[in-house]
């Protein structure tokens, strides 16, 4: 049974697109059939992060408007056979997507894939609402920082009221993904702790992604971080998060300074 997942946050720049690509690739690597959809009409970037920017011919808007078939717009990943991308268009027309059009695309994708992952645009307007509209579950990407947490709270409110599932009186499955976690700042007491964020947002934790150069490096070369350097802390955190999405029970590790030091020591010994 296919699962439709929206990756959302309210605030921009917290890591929605990176997380969509990383989780999508990790699930596909585990053998799941995955499609990632870019809902950021006018400002598409998932194609770039996935390294497929030069292969875009048709896009989500073309499909919704009936100008192209879904099969023409879907781009198969060059590294993973079971990973596909449905890019957004670069059109500036805000009303290019309709509710009915999006719904019919999602229904068709549900029949073909195990996972349909919708990368939401920032904000709380139409685009963000359409991205979450037909989702079964949501990944809320949050930085441990006041403005991001506030916007996440707002988005959680919308997930519980403006989605099809909420309107039917069903519970939207919500998962919190904390990104750009900085153990050094946390140990100084200058960053909201994981417990603080969890208590404020009262949403179950899906994973903690530490601030990492690997994330930037992966997007530079157009490879999801979970495929680029599988052993990096960020990649491992995303792979664990994907396992949890898939129902596996993986213990949660809060990245800490101490651990890092120990890791370095062990790495040196092993070398």
């Amino acid at each position: 049974m296919a699962k439709v997942l929206v990756v959302t946050s309210g605030k921009g720049g917290v890591g929605k697109t990176t997380s969509t690509a990383a989780l999508g690739a990790a699930l596909a690597q585990a053998g799941e059939k995955v499609v990632v959809i870019d809902f950021d009409v006018g400002l598409r970037n998932l194609d770039l992060v996935m390294g497929a920017e030069r292969r875009v011919v048709f896009d989500l808007v073309n499909v919704v408007q009936g100008m192209a078939k879904l099969s023409q717009a879907l781009i198969r990943d060059k590294r993973l056979e079971t990973l596909w991308l449905l890019p957004a268009s670069q059109t500036r027309d805000k009303d290019a997507l309709t509710e009915e059009g999006v719904q019919s695309v999602i229904v068709e994708l549900r029949s073909k894939f195990d996972w349909v992952i919708c990368d939401s645009p920032a904000g709380i307007e139409r685009g963000a609402q359409l991205a979450m509209r037909y989702a079964d579950a949501a990944v809320i990407v949050t930085n441990p920082e006041v403005s991001s947490v506030r916007d996440s709270d707002r988005i959680i409110g919308m997930l519980d009221s403006k989605t099809e599932k909420a309107e039917k009186g069903e519970r939207m499955d919500k998962h919190l993904l904390i990104t750009r976690y900085d153990p050094a700042r946390a140990s100084r007491g200058d960053m909201l702790s994981i417990d603080d964020v969890l208590e404020i947002l009262s949403t179950p934790l899906l994973g903690i992604i530490p601030e990492s150069e690997e994330v930037l490096r992966a997007s530079n070369v157009g490879t999801p971080v979970t495929l680029n350097n599988t052993d990096s802390v960020a990649a491992r955190a995303y792979i664990d998060a994907a396992k949890r999405l898939n129902g596996e029970n993986v213990s949660m590790i809060v990245p800490s300074m101490k651990r890092r030091l120990l890791d370095k020591l062990f790495a040196r010994r092993a070398a």
Binding site: V146, V149, R150, R188, G189, M191, L192, S193, D196, I200
Partner: peptide, 22 residues
Amino acid sequence: FFKRGGSAPVARERLQILLAHE
């Protein structure tokens, strides 16, 4: 580095008050 507290508790309290209202 050794000082307990930092600015996080302030952030946490401000958020809790703000979000309760919102």
